[in-house]
Design a protein around this nucleic acid. Structure first.
Lengths: 266, 266
DNA sequence: AGAAGGACCAGTGGTCCGTA
DNA sequence: AGAAGGACCAGTGGTCCGTA
C-alpha cells in the first residue's frame, strides 16, 4: 500500500475534473466571474486543446504523408483534422485591471489568475500527500507543475510561472501600486517585458521599508508564500541594502548578466 | 561580487578554525566538558586524521612503490608514515548516558553530539548565506555536510547522520525515555542496530499522543527542526494511524522491505 | 556477523536558448 | 523584434551496497 513517494499524486481523480476552480479566485475581477472562465465552450477556454500538425506525428515516419493540411489557420476551435503539435499560449500584453485582452493576446488578470490556480493545485497535492502520510510540499514544486499538467492545465508551465513571480508579488503586496503601474505602462504602449522589469523596483522599495528580508515578506503573505523568491529579486534587495546599486543592479546571477535593464531609478 | 549561490560557503574562514565548538553542546554530559573534547591532543580527538595506506596514493601510479609500510598498526596517533586512505570512524556501541565508550568504539553521547555539531554548522552556513543575500537553508542539507567536511569535521557524513536521526529525535523529545532505553539495551548486551530499531516505537507513541503529525513534532523542537523526518518514521506513523500495523510495520520504503524488525510491540 | 560511508540515482530548482 | 516553454544541467535528498 506504500507507493513511491514521488509518484505520489499520479492518478488521483484527475481524469474527470480537469481544472475545476470554476470560481475559486475571486480577487481583482470587476465582473462577477472571471472572463476566461465565463466563455467556457466557445473557444478561448479550450485554447490548450488546439494543436498544430508537424514533424511529431508519432509513428508516421516520413514526411511524405503530406500533413501540410490546413494549419486550419487561426480560428479558435478547429474541431476536425486533429494534429499533434501543441499550440503555444497567446503572449501577454499589458492590460489594466479588469480589462480583457482582445485578439490573440492574454491580459495580466489572467496571468495572476494562473498563480492562484497553481496555488490551488498545490493545496490539492498537499492534501493528497497528507492523507498518504508522505512528505508535504510547502511551495509550488515540479511535482505541482506535473500535477497541474495531468489535471489538464497544460497552459501552466514552470518557466512561465517563474518568469513573472515578482510581478505577481507586487500584485499581492501592493495591489494599488501594481494597478497604477499597469495603467501607466499600458498608456505608454510598453510591452510586457518592460512592464515586467519595472515591477522589481517597487518591490525593492517595499523590502527596504521592512528590513530587507524579502523571504520574510513572501512568507508572511498567504498567497505569495507558496512561491520561491526569484533569484534576481533577492539579488536586487541584497545589493540595494549594501548600497552598491550601480554595479550589479538588474544583472542576473553573474555581474554583467543577461537581462536588459531599463532604469535603476529606485 | 555575486558568486554562484551553491558555492556559497566555499572558503569562508574555514582553514584555521576546524571545529571550534569547543563546548557548544552542553546537554547530557555528567562531566563538565564532554569527554571527546577534553582529551584534545592525546589521541581520540584526532581520530579523523589517522590514515591507512592503500591503493590511493594519488599520482604514484603502479603498486611497486611498496607502500605496504607500517599500517603503523593501531595506536591512536601515528605521526609519521603519512599514508592516504582515510580510516573509518569506530563503530557505535550502546552506552548509558554519560558513559564513555572504551576500546575502538564510540558511545551514544558522542553520536548525539554529532547532531549538535551539524546544527552548529548549519547555523554558520545560514549566517554566511544571509550576509551574502543568498537563499538560506532551514535544514541540514548537502551544502551543510560539505561545509562540515571542509571545516575539518571529516567524521560527519550524510548516510550516518540520516541513519540515526530518529534516535536523536527520541533523545530530544523524551530524554528520560531515551536514557532508559539505552540502559536497558546496554544491560541486555544488544548491539547498536537493535537499539536503533527500538527507537522507532516510542517515537510513534509520542506522535500518537500529539495527533500523528510527526512533521509538526520535529518542527516544534529547536534542535530537531533542522533534520528531515526520516522516511521510515513517517511511514510508521502513517500506518499506525491507519490501524494497519501488522502489514507494513518496520519495513522500509517498500512493503516487505530491507531492515530486520524485532518487535512490533507498540 | 554488524556497521560505516562512498557513491550512485531519480527527481529538483533554475533558466537558457532553439522555436514560433 | 518580443515572448512562450521544452529541455537541459548542476547540485539535492535519499539510501544501497561494496568495503573493512
Amino acid at each position: 500500500d506504500t507507493t513511491h513517494a514521488l509518484d505520489a499524486l499520479s492518478q488521483e481523480g484527475l481524469s474527470e475534473e480537469p481544472v475545476q476552480q470554476k470560481e475559486a479566485a475571486g480577487s481583482g475581477g470587476g465582473t462577477g466571474g472571471l472572463p476566461w472562465e465565463v466563455v467556457a465552450g466557445d473557444g478561448k477556454k479550450k485554447r490548450q486543446h488546439r494543436r498544430k500538425k508537424g514533424q511529431a506525428r508519432m509513428s508516421s515516419f516520413g514526411d511524405d504523408d503530406g500533413t501540410d493540411v490546413g494549419e486550419a489557420d487561426d480560428d479558435e476551435d478547429n474541431g476536425g483534422g486533429v494534429a499533434d503539435q501543441r499550440q503555444r499560449e497567446h503572449p501577454f500584453i499589458v492590460t489594466e485591471p479588469g480589462e480583457v485582452a482582445r485578439g490573440k493576446k492574454n491580459g495580466l488578470d489572467y496571468l495572476f489568475h494562473l498563480y492562484e490556480q497553481c496555488r490551488d493545485f498545490l493545496i490539492q497535492v498537499q492534501s493528497i500527500a497528507k492523507e498518504r502520510g508522505e512528505k508535504c510540499p510547502t511551495k509550488v514544486t515540479n511535482q505541482v507543475f506535473r500535477y497541474a499538467k495531468k489535471a489538464g492545465a497544460t497552459y501552466i508551465n514552470k518557466p512561465k510561472m517563474r518568469h513573472y513571480v515578482h510581478c505577481y508579488a507586487l500584485h499581492c503586496l501592493d495591489e494599488e501600486g501594481s494597478d497604477a503601474l499597469r495603467r501607466g505602462f499600458k498608456e505608454r504602449g510598453e510591452n510586457v517585458g518592460s512592464w515586467r522589469q519595472a515591477c522589481y523596483s517597487p518591490l525593492v522599495a517595499i523590502a527596504a521599508r521592512q528590513g530587507w528580508d524579502i523571504d520574510a515578506i513572501f512568507n508572511a503573505h498567504p498567497r505569495l508564500s507558496v512561491w520561491y523568491v526569484p533569484t534576481k529579486l533577492r539579488q536586487l534587495c541584497h545589493s540595494q541594502r549594501s548600497g552598491a546599486v550601480a554595479a550589479v543592479a538588474a544583472s542576473s546571477s553573474v555581474p554583467g548578466g543577461v537581462e536588459h535593464h531599463h532604469h535603476l531609478s529606485f
